[in-house]
Design a protein around this nucleic acid. Structure first.
Lengths: 257, 257
DNA sequence: CGTCGTGTTGAACCTTATCAAAATATGTGG
DNA sequence: CCACATATTTTGATAAGGTTCAACACGACG
């Protein structure tokens, strides 16, 4: 059980629903066969039989990105430890979208058809995975908002607060302190800004006393103030959908069949 | 069967997998109880028991959007006829995200727990629905790319071509002609531009001979040229994931349990 | 010790936003 | 069916936020 508690996937899913011992074991076993991945390595184009991989990131960070022939690049998603990637990879491996590690990482490869099987054997876990996927879509939509309607400073502040929340959930951030292993170029491609402007905006945040940096170390000394400045509302990270009552109802329906 | 053929949901899902008669019937029955919705009506905040609605748009257009207290608004998604909305609504009703009809619409309300039940009874339909959801996420990611890295003209051209493709799939566009029942304000909020600039950019497209407009009528006289100008590649709309072979394998696994 | 990736800063430029106002639909009540 | 009010489209002038180009600093690494 100690081992299961240390598993990031267990922590991630455990932040959504309460897990019992058997469920922790299933998750721990799923991610037992982890494999080390070197920095800046692509992970997407190596599906065994064209179905594409389904992965869980256990350590390190990764990005999802698309590029244009003329060099323009957009990072569409940051993948953090404990995040499952491409849950429906086998159903729609998004073409042109690459998955790439930022630093050294550890990854577990899952059966692409895990979800249907899990819905049968462990419906609570399957529902939790669908929940995670829905939260991911919400994060994507919120980033769309940032790129469409927020200023550079708001975008950056919003991102930092989002990361703080997401990392805290898996025990990788505490009191507004965490490590951000991404270059300013990655941040620029994530936020739709130029590298230069990311740099200036970071300085602005520092001068406003809302950010401290030391290498890859990040400190947010006054999160409420930053949230006000960046129009950040964490509601989109904690959807209310999976209430115990609703969950129980869903499971009833499944069993009734 | 004639009735089933006329059903937009049947056409939409039929563009993903080949449907047999029984499956068409199931889909037709699911969307039989349609309800008329007036223009500019919100559809999101009326979940029966907090689980939120799961809808299929049968006629008319709708938008998904989020707003900030200061009035800034971002349209995160355009919902077209045949598109299911909030497939996991019961799992994660994205808070702060409203669904609103543009013109008069017809909508079918579904059981929020349709998906698990369908996975058991009609796994092929369930897989197709998951596929649709994945395509939707791909569209979201592509729009993120637009807002982050494309110019106003590219964004608009890209959107028009995307709509042409999506509408053609359900028989609502032909030869680059379709109806776009959205004001320039909606387009602006969708593309992260100001109304004024949307207007100017539309003029630019018209002057370049890439667009003709007449009221809500849209004509794209030279789609290849527009695609070149807007860096449009339709691959993201036709993911390769659901090959007949992969589908068969998935179904085998489901049955084996 | 030189090279490469990353971070940092300045100055000129440009795309797009904002403000303002007119022209054209669209709708509504009498 | 008209007259009015309202929403939408269109155009001009000005300003801001962000990009681009250029140069330099710094540390890691062979």
């Amino acid at each position: 059980m100690g081992a299961a508690m240390d598993n990031v996937l267990v922590r991630r899913i455990g932040s959504v629903i309460a897990l019992d011992g058997a469920e922790r074991d299933v998750l721990a076993r799923l991610t037992a066969a982890a494999e080390a991945v070197p920095p800046r390595t692509g992970l997407s184009d190596d599906g065994d039989d064209g179905t594409g991989p389904v992965l869980v990131l256990l350590e390190g960070w990764a990005i999802r990105c698309r590029s244009l022939p003329d060099g323009r690049r957009q990072v569409t998603d940051l993948v953090l430890p404990g995040d499952p990637v491409g849950l429906y990879g086998g159903l729609a491996g998004r073409p042109g979208e690459g998955l790439e590690t930022l630093g050294p990482a550890r990854v577990a490869r899952l059966d692409p058809w895990l979800l249907p099987a899990l819905l049968h054997d462990r419906p609570r876990l399957a529902l939790a995975l669908l929940h995670l996927e829905a939260v991911g879509t919400g994060i994507l939509a919120e980033r769309l908002f940032s790129l469409g309607r927020r200023t550079a400073l708001e975008r950056l502040g919003h991102l930092l607060l989002e990361l703080d929340h997401r990392l805290e959930r898996v025990g990788l951030a505490e009191g507004g302190r965490f490590s951000l292993p991404a270059t300013q170029e990655v941040l620029a491609d994530l936020l739709g800004l130029s590298i230069v402007h990311v740099n200036r905006t970071l300085r602005q945040l520092r001068e406003a006393g809302l950010l401290e940096t030391a290498g890859s170390g990040i400190v947010l000394p006054d999160r409420p103030a930053l949230a006000r400045r960046a129009q950040f509302d964490d509601a989109y990270l904690h959807p209310h959908g999976l209430s115990p009552a609703a969950e129980e109802r869903a499971l009833e329906r499944l069993r009734a069949r």
